[in-house]
């Protein structure tokens, strides 16, 4: 059955106890998804599974058979960034960049859940599962709010369920 990763179907041949994040990074070479804490705290490993942002360090790849997975590599290209990526760039929403892939994923989930006018307080609350050890939250929050507006303008926001 395989897993659709960024639009192309990949077979899973690794053992059942393989974690999604290790499969993405070590088997597929998609190293944009980072491993921070490995204990479901930091959110550096956030990826989208069937449209929902989850922590790939706490999901078995074997449980994802038949699912669609989107990683940071699947969002945009260097020439055509996803609006949330572009917002992180223009708002300087990163310092060392380690947490950034997970922050961008979380930002997209926040934009989809709360729309283009999401408040600063809501963004901060919804970022509880993402840690930035540079402590650069000020610009990350600004980037996510700008990214949510840009996603709406680009017609990329998910319709509310």
């Amino acid at each position: 059955m395989g897993i659709s990763v960024n639009g192309s179907v990949r077979e899973v041949t690794s053992p059942d106890h393989r974690l999604l994040v290790d499969w993405l990074r070590d088997d597929l070479g998609l190293t944009g998804t980072h491993v921070g804490c490995t204990t479901s705290q930091c959110g550096a490993c956030n990826v989208m599974v069937d449209g929902e942002v989850v922590k790939a360090c706490t999901v078995l790849v074997a449980s994802c058979e038949g699912s669609e997975v989107t990683t940071i590599e699947g969002l945009g290209t260097p020439e055509a960034l996803h609006p949330m990526q572009a917002a992180f760039k223009s708002a300087h929403g990163l310092q060392c960049g380690f947490c950034t892939p997970g922050m961008v994923m979380a930002g997209i989930a926040i934009a989809n859940a709360h729309g283009p006018d999401v408040s600063e307080a809501t963004v901060r609350h919804e970022l509880e599962g993402n840690l930035c050890r540079c402590t650069g939250y000020q610009n990350i929050v600004a980037a996510i709010r700008a990214g949510a507006r840009a996603m709406a303008e680009a017609g990329l926001l998910k319709e509310p369920a």
Binding site: G43, V53, V54
Partner: peptide
């Protein structure tokens, strides 16, 4: 409970 990603799973 937990954080948004945890609550989704």
């Amino acid at each position: 409970i937990g954080d948004p990603q945890v609550r989704r799973r």
